[in-house]
Design a protein around this nucleic acid. Structure first.
Length: 892
RNA sequence: GGGCGCGUAGCUCAGUUGGUUAGAGCGCCUGCUUCACACGCAGGAGGUCACAGGUUCGAGUCCUGUCGCGCCCACCA
């Protein structure tokens, strides 16, 4: 039972953060709540593989608090395998590693590359939470990962085939961001936009059969080789007469139409815009609207294609120089202006991305989104905090079709086969050996893989055995709660809802809780590129896992961001140490009193033990049990409504403010050497054990450690604190009388200390004092006098009633007067103090009187407010009067 | 351009249907090594709740406007 003076987290806290750092799969937990299931997930987002993110610590903390809370309230736990979401990120890491050796994945070939990725995953994945092993749940760890080879593939394929047959999946043209170095398409997220100083070149396009020409402005003159139209605004009088005519594309001598389109902004440049459908996303869309042909003039290596005539084979920037020179030579370069523009660069290589037209697979999202909107509006899924609900709706209304094909080599292959003979597509559950259209055996599988979000979207049901109708699926779908960050709301949450409604006919979860963002001390969003990330492992090493967790939770007010500072972490570490030292105090005194480790039989709510001789319960015990009951109420309510900061703050206030500051101090007077396990010990250990359980979701490791030490050998209590019951409030445990009496004691002690500090007295020196109490029972048995004397360092004479004369150093309230007999010199310090108090009281009295004197106000005020206002006014008046008396006594 | 959020003590932040003299942690000042804890104990100072109007008996809280800060989305020929 010996504890070190200072709590050492390293010794007792498993560093589960390490697990997150190395794991490359979802970890998910599921639980049931009110007969309905709840689940929570943690995923490393694709851009942070290989490191841990503070945001995950937060997310995990909130999830783990809820999960432990549920578990402690008696709901069964189910651990679900994660999907292979981070496979894509792993692939990127492998690709980067290969690049260092000068190898590209194309050199390696598909199979060898996949093997490499597997190797990496085996090496870095798969560490399992140590704390979970301690909990003793039955977990089939072989099912902790869904990979490309097991059940998920079947689910993914089933969904793909079904959606395809319903016409919800189609192939179409799409503008991708192409990285010419990596030879791959990038998602919008992988493109970083940068403002650069560029130029705006104005080029003359001669109108056919006329001496006129249109001047178009462009930042990328080399793309003009692929122009297929020039657009003017339908309201632009300057050019309207040219509508229907054509221009001759300079350098290429191609004839292209002049079209009307809103995209041409009369205010910008010349008001004319060239249309290059194959190399600009906006132009691409305009081309769709006007049925314009696409001409690819830049290839995947960013070189000009054979369509580029004389420029064919040139690099895109060399081509630009040549094009400009040639235009200039022909006198077609109108003018050049400096222009700031933003260019998209590859996050991975820094190369300027090339917009490229390609054929991709799409999910038709409109019909799916409609179901999501309907379900959300019916309240079947609620997003909280509710401002996200609106944002979510806006997005669902404006949703575009979802491109699901990726030119990657890791992931679920698209189950579609192209026929080389008839060019038909065969989509089937079983791998086909011939084309379903022409019967040819000359077919090959599509080389693309599915977007990871496609399989992730199936997570809520695919992990439960879908499409089989398993008992788990029956029980755990739909789930109750999803905790996640807003950055993933659209990618993942929306898609889980779409797929859930489509495949299961119901929403996947009832509530989505959106948490805040973790920021650094300068309020900057943490990002790897900025390099201002806080490494959670360093934080954990320095402050401990529990301290890190409660720091995050204390800052996690819904809808706000979390600023992480060393000061906050330091104070949390101090709190962990406070818990540790409170335990140390108990253990040392148990030894002194001859008390063995003990804890009560398990119950949700406990009543204090009475003195076996008198049959009475000590006042401090009645009080602390009542306080514990109160906090059990507020903490449960806070967690239930996702107010994690409040839960953390409440357990802190109870443990430090009530338990340590008052209860332990009061109990010190009750310990007797060699007493054995008497009612005092039973009460303090009961409260302490309950406090540990109350704290557990927020401070899991230190509470587990201490709980295990307190747990007697051979106890029939659960093996772990996280399987013990969570404290619950019970109206019968409320003890208003005890709270009032201890409250009065606290205010008397506070007043004496304050008075003595004002007088500049040595706080340790015991001095004589007279206390006149009104309406406060000071019974001999309750030990209040002893407590008062000890905690205020006085030798008090307590009398019922009013002080006969307020002389000396006085502090008064409506319920007591304190008189300290001190020298006249010490009294002067008092005067300012009391006068200042009077000013504030007068203000409060005037305010209350004004409100209470008006019939109109009284009639509009709710009765309970009037009630408190009245009693407050009485109190202010009494106090003011007492102060006045004291002041005149001081004057004498 | 569209949308969202923030501005409360020196600092970082709470403050849930409007209702006591507006709170916490850190920092600061004073006193204390008291046999759990100086990562501590006791006491204290410090705020016209960004500004200006409005609604209300009553506003940190609701409405309008102004100023300052931040985020997201879109666009950028």
């Amino acid at each position: 039972m010996q504890l070190e003076k200072v709590y050492d987290p390293q010794q007792f806290e498993p560093r589960w953060a390490e697990v997150w750092r190395s794991s490359d799969f979802f970890l998910a937990t599921a639980d049931t709540h009110d007969q309905r299931p709840v689940f929570s997930l943690v995923i490393p987002p694709p851009n942070v593989t290989g490191s841990l993110h503070m945001g995950h610590m937060l997310e995990h903390s909130e999830i783990d608090v809820t999960t432990r809370w549920f578990r402690m309230r008696g709901y069964n736990t189910l651990w679900l395998p994660g999907t292979d979401h981070a496979g894509i990120a792993t692939q990127m890491v492998v690709e980067r590693e290969l690049a260092k050796q000068g190898i590209s994945r194309h050199d390696l070939g598909r199979e060898a590359f996949e093997a490499k990725v597997w190797e990496y995953k085996e090496l870095h994945g798969g560490t399992i939470l140590r704390q979970m092993a301690r909990i003793g749940d039955s977990v089939d760890w072989s099912r902790t990962r869904f990979t490309l080879d097991d059940g998920l593939s079947h689910a993914v394929r089933t969904v793909f085939v079904n959606l395809y047959r319903k016409g919800l999946i189609y192939r179409g043209p799409y503008m991708v961001n192409w990285d010419p170095t990596l030879q791959t398409a990038l998602s919008d997220l992988e493109v970083v936009h940068e403002k650069v100083e560029g130029k705006l070149w104005h080029v003359r396009y001669p109108v056919k059969g006329s001496a006129e020409y249109l001047v178009v402005a462009t930042t990328r003159p080399e793309t003009m080789l692929g122009d297929t139209a020039v657009a003017i605004n339908p309201g632009d009088e300057r050019y309207l007469h040219l509508h229907g005519r054509t221009v001759v594309l300079p350098l290429m001598d191609r004839e292209i139409p002049i079209i009307l389109d809103e995209m041409a902004d009369p205010e910008f440049g010349t008001g004319c815009v060239k249309i290059t459908p194959a190399h600009d996303p906006n132009d691409f869309e305009a081309a769709q609207r006007h049925n314009l042909p696409l001409i690819r003039v830049i290839d995947e290596h960013a070189k000009i294609t054979s369509e580029g005539g004389p420029y064919s084979g040139l690099d895109r920037y060399d081509a630009r120089e040549r094009v400009l020179a040639d235009l200039d030579a022909k006198g077609l370069l109108d003018r050049t202006e400096p222009h700031e523009l933003s260019v998209g660069k590859s996050q991975r290589t820094g190369v300027i991305v090339e917009p490229m037209v390609s054929t991709q697979w799409f999910v038709r999202t409109k019909p799916l989104a409609e179901k999501v909107i309907e379900a959300s509006q019916a309240g079947r899924t609620v997003i909280t905090p509710d401002n996200w609900q609106k944002i979510f709706f806006d997005w669902m209304y404006n949703i575009r079709d979802w491109c699901i094909s990726r030119q990657l080599w890791w992931g679920h292959r698209i189950p579609a086969w192209h026929c080389h003979d008839c060019h038909g597509i065969t989509v089937a559950m079983e791998d086909p050996d011939k084309c379903e259209h022409c019967g040819s055996a000359n077919i090959a599988q599509d080389s693309d893989v599915l977007d990871t979000w496609f399989s992730s979207a199936l997570w809520p049901f695919s992990t439960l055995g879908w499409p089989e109708k398993t008992p788990a699926l029956e029980r755990f779908y739909p789930n109750t709660l999803l905790i996640t960050g807003f950055d993933i709301l659209f990618f993942w949450v929306a898609r889980m809802m779409m797929m859930g409604l489509e495949c299961m006919g119901d929403v996947p979860f009832r509530t989505v809780y959106i948490h805040g963002l973790v920021r650094d001390a300068e309020r900057q969003k943490m990002s790897k590129t900025k390099g201002n990330t806080v490494d959670p492992l360093e934080t954990i090493d320095k402050y401990g896992t529990d301290a890190t967790r409660i720091t995050l939770l204390l800052g996690a007010a819904p809808g706000t961001d979390i600023v992480l500072t060393d000061e906050r972490l330091t104070s949390s570490r101090a709190f962990a140490n406070k818990i540790w030292n409170a335990a140390r105090f108990l253990f040392l005194n148990m030894e002194r009193c001859g008390v063995e480790p003990w804890m009560p039989e398990e119950q949700a709510c406990y009543a204090p033990h009475p003195d076996p001789v008198t049959g009475e319960v000590p006042l401090e015990d009645r009080w602390i049990f009542s306080r514990l009951n109160y906090y059990a109420g507020t903490v449960n309510k806070a967690i239930d409504s996702y107010r994690y900061h409040e839960a953390a703050q409440q357990v802190w206030a109870f443990f430090w403010g009530d338990f340590c500051d008052w209860y332990v101090e009061l109990k010190k007077l009750r310990f007797e050497e060699g007493s054995g396990l008497n009612h005092h010990w039973k009460n303090i250990l009961t409260v302490f054990e309950s406090a540990l359980r109350l704290l557990h979701p927020v401070m899991p490791f230190i509470t587990e450690e201490l709980w295990q030490r307190l747990r007697p050998e051979g106890s029939n209590r659960s093996a772990s604190i996280c399987l013990a019951r969570y404290p619950e409030p019970d109206p019968s445990a409320e003890d208003a009388t005890a709270e009032a009496e201890v409250g009065a004691l606290q205010s008397i002690i506070g007043a004496v200390r304050n008075l003595r500090a004002d007088l500049g007295q040595d706080p340790k020196k015991t001095i004589d004092a007279e206390i006149y109490a009104r309406g406060i029972a000071f019974t001999a048995a309750s030990g209040q006098l002893e407590a008062l004397n000890k905690l205020a360092s006085i030798s008090a004479k307590v009398t019922e009633g009013n002080a006969p004369e307020l002389r000396g150093a006085v502090r008064s309230t409506p319920s007591f007067d304190i008189v300290l007999l001190v020298s006249a010199a010490e009294l002067e310090a008092q005067r300012n103090r009391v006068e200042k108090d009077q000013l504030q009281l007068l203000k409060a009295i005037a305010n209350a009187e004004r409100q209470l004197s008006s019939e109109e106000i009284l009639s509009k005020m709710p009765p309970h407010v009037v009630e408190t206002l009245r009693s407050k006014l009485d109190e202010y008046r009494a106090k003011h009067e007492k102060n006045q008396e004291a002041l005149s006594a001081l004057a004498r």
